[in-house]
């Protein structure tokens, strides 16, 4: 193992519940609960990426353990290497050798959602008037929509929230096996007026299970918001 990362907790549900393990040969397994796509991701890092990560991990391990208390109401992160562990609050900034590795791993967490194995993605229409959940990857995943909720937030200039719409929690068919062409159109009559200098973000909360273990998740569509 080169690095074993986990992030969990936080006050606002669903909790952060993210994990990434990169093995010596560059193969990785990742779980994402709050991301553009949620569920299991797997694959192999490129040789260049792997080489860089291994170098950073060796330097961090040589620097020894790091232990910082998590911030109140925040989630906690843990980075485990061969021979050293770092624990800290989510997004804590760390100097030195650990800093390079931590920033790299956090970046990988965002990038590797492009390699789904058994996951659910959120697709939002280009005109912002439709949205659906879709299965991603080559393995099935159990999806529980019994507490599905959809939220659309419109961001305006200066990071001001200019619209906030959400569906009520409605009972839906409880559990289903998502595979291949599985997709579910979402209720999306938000009525928000999109346009110049406005960016629409969408958050869909539901639950998925893997091997009988259930996790509350939030699939997000969050394009950049200009200042």
């Amino acid at each position: 193992m080169i690095v074993d990362y986990a992030r969990m907790g936080g006050r606002v549900p669903p909790p952060d519940n993210e994990g990434l393990q990169v093995e010596d040969d560059g193969s990785f397994s990742m779980w994402r609960s709050i991301a553009p796509a949620v569920g299991r991701f797997a694959g192999k890092l490129s040789p260049a990426e792997l080489s860089q990560l291994r170098k950073e991990a060796q330097m961090a391990a040589a620097a020894g353990d790091v232990s910082r208390p998590p911030t109140m109401d925040g989630s906690a992160e843990r980075f485990r290497l061969d021979g050293a562990t770092a624990t800290m609050g989510n997004n804590d900034d760390v100097e030195g050798a650990w800093g390079e590795l931590i920033r790299h791993v956090r970046k990988l967490l965002e990038q590797l959602v492009s390699m789904p194995q058994a996951a659910v993605g959120l697709e939002v229409g280009g005109d912002g008037r439709s949205a659906r959940l879709v299965h991603l990857g080559n393995k099935p995943i159990t999806v529980d929509l019994s507490k599905l909720s959809v939220r659309a937030v419109l961001w305006g200039r200066g990071f001001q929230k200019v619209g906030d719409w959400s569906t009520p929690v409605k009972p839906n068919p409880a559990q289903t096996e998502a595979d291949d062409s599985w997709n579910v159109p979402l209720p999306f009559d938000h009525g928000l007026k999109t346009g110049k200098n406005k960016v629409l973000h969408v958050y869909v909360t539901f639950a998925v299970s893997e091997n009988g273990q259930r996790a509350d998740v939030r699939a997000e569509h969050t394009p950049p918001v200009p200042a």
Partner: peptide, 16 residues
């Protein structure tokens, strides 16, 4: 950017 705020950090793009 986006993120989940807590006692020590506020994100400019956080719906909550």
């Amino acid at each position: 950017g986006k993120g989940r705020s807590d006692a020590g950090q506020f994100f400019v793009v956080d719906p909550d």
